[in-house]
């Protein structure tokens, strides 16, 4: 455990500590009471407790045997299905200790696996089902093949409620000796959009700058983490400078490693700030949604964003010709 990174330090240890996802936690508690469970599929956006729920469930189930009975693999770091299969084999071969007859293997970011790898995984899941239960975690359950979905109990995690996030922020601030103002909390909540990890990270970075955390210091952090690039990209695009916009986009994606999901979220909210006819905003949002979907299906983010920007540029030109901007 890390005490240096707050998101880790304040990660719940047991199911009882989890403050949200009530229905899900209730069902997981049922698994603990019955000492049995099916394979599970945890789906939902990042930072809302999928991994935490898997960890807490396992700790509650296995107690002192947790470390021997629990293992975690990340599909995007493990090269190829063979590595996964080997690890599963070694892990599942030795029987579980204690009174629970199986072990738990969490496979994170399972939606990053190719469908071939998923097919192979499905056979592995079947083969070791008596000794090992799988929890697959993913952002998009649509990218998980049908046969796996049908073998898993589905759990759809939702972004945290505003009240839950602000309560946790006040709690952590109190523990860490940080003076946190209400407008500071609101700024974090507004920015993190239900993602508790992002909320913690934002708070910690602001606290590194000053122990007095308020709206201004939060915006300093947000400004550094999300440079005004998106706004700039859209401005350039609307002024017809597509090549410059694309260069900025590349910089964000490749040099700064900004997640495409963050970019799409920001483009989405920028659309409503644009000085264009209201009806046009719907058209633009429709295109943003299409791009979001394509990327979620695994398409290349830079290419898809470029196509989106080209569409924006076309709209901008039409509006200019009509003297609407």
């Amino acid at each position: 455990m890390s005490i240096g990174i707050w998101a880790e330090k304040y990660r719940p240890k047991t199911l009882d500590e989890i403050v949200n996802q009530r229905e899900i936690v209730d069902r997981l508690r049922g698994f603990v009471r019955a000492k049995t469970m099916p394979h599970c599929l945890f789906a939902g956006p990042p930072g809302i407790g999928k991994t935490t729920a898997a960890l807490c469930l396992s700790r509650d189930l296995f107690g002192e045997h947790f470390s021997a009975s629990f293992s975690e693999l990340n599909a995007s770091d493990e090269r190829g299905i063979n590595v996964v299969r080997e690890k599963v084999k070694t892990f599942a071969r030795i029987r579980a200790l204690g009174d629970v007859s199986f072990k738990i293997l969490v496979l994170d970011e399972a939606d990053n696996m190719t469908s071939d790898a998923q097919q192979a995984l499905r056979r592995t899941m079947e083969k070791y089902t008596s000794t090992c239960r799988f929890i697959l975690s993913c952002n998009y359950s649509s990218r998980i093949i049908e046969p796996i979905q049908s073998r898993c109990a589905p759990f759809r995690f939702t972004p945290l409620a505003t009240a839950d996030i602000s309560e946790r922020l006040y709690y952590v601030a109190g523990k860490e000796g940080v003076a946190l103002t209400e407008d500071g909390v609101n700024a974090i909540v507004d920015q993190s959009k239900g993602d508790l990890r992002k909320a913690y990270n934002t708070l910690q970075a602001a606290a590194a700058i000053s122990k007095n955390v308020n709206e201004a210091s939060i915006y300093t952090v947000i400004g550094k983490v999300h440079p005004k690039d998106i706004q700039e990209i859209i401005i350039q695009t609307f002024q017809g400078r597509f090549i410059e916009a694309r260069d900025l986009l590349r910089k964000m994606l490749i040099e700064h490693g900004v997640a495409s999901s963050d970019i799409i979220k920001q483009i989405h909210s920028e659309v409503f700030k644009l000085n264009i006819p209201e009806s046009m905003k719907v058209t633009l949002v429709d295109m943003v949604g299409e791009t979001d979907f394509r990327i979620s299906q695994g398409a290349n983010d830079e290419i898809q964003f470029s196509a989106l920007l080209a569409r924006f540029a076309l709209v901008a030109e039409k509006l200019r010709n009509m003297d609407r901007i």
Binding site: I5, T51, N74, S76, D77, A205, G257, V258
Partner: peptide
């Protein structure tokens, strides 16, 4: 409890 690429995206800037 995450992947390298997620660390780069979710933690590195902070």
């Amino acid at each position: 409890h995450t992947s390298s690429i997620q660390v780069v995206r979710e933690y590195l800037p902070y």
